[in-house]
Structure formats: structure tokens, C-alpha cells
């Protein structure tokens, strides 16, 4: 297959794709997962998403107003950040968690660095990491699917970490999203519909998500609990926030490497770190931390993988 996404020196051919078009398309592609989340976890899930969106957009507008910058909330990037943050929250959190999280994502995760395109870390994930370190008790108590009585139940990954039996969660349940988890991460089928749309429109490429998911699957299969090649790779691929993270957060333009080779290294690192955190780390889930750590490594990956300018000696 010809490599159509090569980063090269000029001349460039203009393509009628703008930042705002991409942002709104990604947001649109995330809608099915949100609807599924609202259906699975009930009204609170919808409520949290709306609060998160409003806070994110308002924060961006207020900060741009205060710093005398052009207000750019129409480009959809703040909307997308708010949406992704909400999707990374358990449905049972109190209302102020998405408020603080969205504010942190936009103000500290993005605007402090100079706004869109300048941020080192994925803003939504920075917000989630802040919430996770600040209110671990709220961020790790989940409600079960289709039970609207707010009884806490552990996620499949948390059960695995504590060495408890998984119960009757089948692959099909996990695929459809009938399990405990964050609002937007549970319904794999809805996420895949959105991802297919983005892949089809070529807004994201297939290298990052596939390398990421494949690495997690293979690694967890190889390093199984009962020795070599005994792991349940499919379980690990379907559980936690892997699908959401791989398709919608690791592919963030700003915080992932520029070249295809760099992106593959980036995605491999994400996958490896995710698997390591899940298998041996302190937390049951590691997708968000893996992506954040690889975000930090992105500049150095770029440095070693960028296309050479013709005639210049390699250092």
C-alpha cells in the first residue's frame, strides 16, 4: 500500500481539511459511545457529560477573554476535550468532579502551554490524571451496568488485579458494554463505529490504534498469569479504556509524533506501558498513564524519526 500520509518538505498540496472540521468530526464519531454510555449507566452519565462539556468550553472562552486572545471555542477542540474527559469518568462521580477536571484539562493541560497545538500532554488525560491523584476514592468506584441504583461494583480489570473471580462477564458482554467502567469506554461496538468513520474519512490513520491494541493483546497473552502464552489477550483488549484510548486519545494530532515510523514507536510504547501497568503496576488500568508518558516522549521520538532534509548529514 502506498504511504499517503508521509510528512515531507514543501511543496505541499492543499487539502480542504481544517482543524475545526477534524475536531467536530472526532466529536461526532464519539456520539454513539456516549449514547451507549447513557443507555447503560442511565441519567447520571448524560448529566456528567453535559457538565463536563459546558465547563470545558466556558473555561476556554473565559481564559481567552482574560488573556485578550481570539476566542476560538468554535473550533471544537475544547468541546472534544470536555467530551473525552467525561468519557473517562465513572458514572457515579459527584457533579463537581467533571467541573474541576474540565477546568484543569483546559486551563492547566492546554491554555497554560499557549493553547491548541502547544500542549505537551493530551488535555483530557491530564485532567483525568489530576482527578485520579486527587480523589482516588471517587475515581475508582464504579456502578454496574443497567442497574440504576448506584450500587458500586468493580470493573473486570479491578477484579483481575485483586485476584477475584470475574463472575459471568463474557466477551460479548464486554463488547456490548455490559460491565462496570467509565462512561465512554464500556461500549466497544459504539466506539468501533465511530473509529471506522474516522478511519474511512482518513482523519486518523490505522497505524497508531492497531499497533497499540496489538501490542497490548500480544504482550498480555505472552506474559500470562500461569506462565508463557497463557494470558487472555482478548480480555485485555476489550477491557478498560483501551479501545477509547487507542482510537481517540493516542491519535491526538498535537501530542503524537509526526511521522508514521514515529507513530508506530509511540503506539508500541503506549501498548507496552499499558500492559506493564495492568499486569504488574499498582493500578488496575494503565491506558491513560501510558499515553501520557508517551506524550512526554513524543518530542524525542520526533527528533529521531523525522524525515531528513536532502543533503544534510545525519547526526
Amino acid at each position: 500500500m502506498p504511504n499517503r500520509l508521509k510528512v515531507a518538505v514543501s511543496p505541499h498540496i492543499h487539502k480542504p481539511v481544517s482543524v475545526s472540521k477534524i475536531m467536530w468530526s472526532v466529536s461526532l464519531s464519539l456520539i454513539p459511545a456516549g449514547i451507549a454510555g447513557a443507555f447503560i449507566f442511565g441519567f447520571p452519565a448524560l448529566w456528567i457529560t453535559v457538565i463536563s462539556l459546558i465547563t470545558a468550553v466556558t473555561t476556554e472562552a473565559v481564559i481567552q477573554k482574560l488573556t485578550n486572545k481570539k476566542i476560538s471555542i468554535k473550533d471544537g477542540s475544547a468541546f472534544l476535550t470536555g467530551l473525552l474527559l467525561a468519557y473517562n469518568l465513572p458514572p457515579s462521580v459527584p457533579f463537581w468532579i467533571p467541573v474541576v477536571g474540565s477546568f484543569f484539562s483546559i486551563a492547566i493541560g492546554k491554555m497554560i502551554f499557549g493553547g491548541l497545538g502547544q500542549n505537551i500532554f493530551n488535555p483530557a488525560l491530564a485532567g483525568r490524571a489530576f482527578l485520579m491523584a486527587s480523589w482516588p476514592s471517587y475515581m475508582t468506584s464504579f456502578t454496574g451496568p443497567l442497574k440504576f441504583d448506584a450500587v458500586t461494583s468493580a470493573t473486570p480489570l479491578a477484579l483481575l488485579k485483586e485476584g477475584k473471580p470475574l463472575g459471568d462477564v463474557s466477551y460479548m458482554d464486554m463488547f456490548l458494554g455490559l460491565r462496570g467502567g467509565c462512561i465512554g469506554e464500556v461500549c466497544i461496538i459504539a466506539l468501533l463505529i465511530g473509529a471506522a468513520y474516522l478511519l474511512f474519512r482518513r482523519y486518523i490513520n490505522w497505524q497508531i490504534p492497531f499497533t497499540f491494541i496489538l501490542t497490548v493483546g500480544l504482550f498480555t497473552w505472552i506474559c500470562g498469569p500461569r506462565g508463557f502464552l497463557t494470558g487472555d489477550g482478548i480480555f485485555h483488549v476489550l477491557s478498560g479504556g483501551l479501545i477509547l484510548g487507542a482510537f481517540f486519545m493516542a491519535t491526538d494530532y498535537v501530542t503524537s509524533p509526526l511521522t508514521i515510523n514515529g507513530q508506530i514507536i509511540f503506539a508500541f510504547g503506549c501498548g507496552l506501558l499499558t500492559a506493564i501497568i495492568r499486569l504488574w503496576g499498582g493500578y488496575p488500568e494503565g491506558v491513560s498513564y501510558a499515553i501520557l508518558i508517551m506524550n512526554a516522549a513524543t518530542p524525542i521520538i520526533d527528533r529521531f524519526t523525522k524525515t531528513r532534509v536532502y543533503g544534510i548529514v545525519r547526526y
Binding site: 474541576v100 491523584a133 486527587s134 480523589w135 482516588p136
Partner: peptide
């Protein structure tokens, strides 16, 4: 009042 634990940790001090 639910304080943000991270501010009390070294990471929060840096922030």
C-alpha cells in the same frame, strides 16, 4: 470539603 490530594503531594508542590 474534599481536598485535592495531589496538591499535597510533591507533584502538586511543583504545580
Amino acid at each position: 470539603f474534599h481536598p485535592a490530594l495531589v496538591i499535597g503531594m510533591p507533584a502538586g508542590a511543583l504545580l
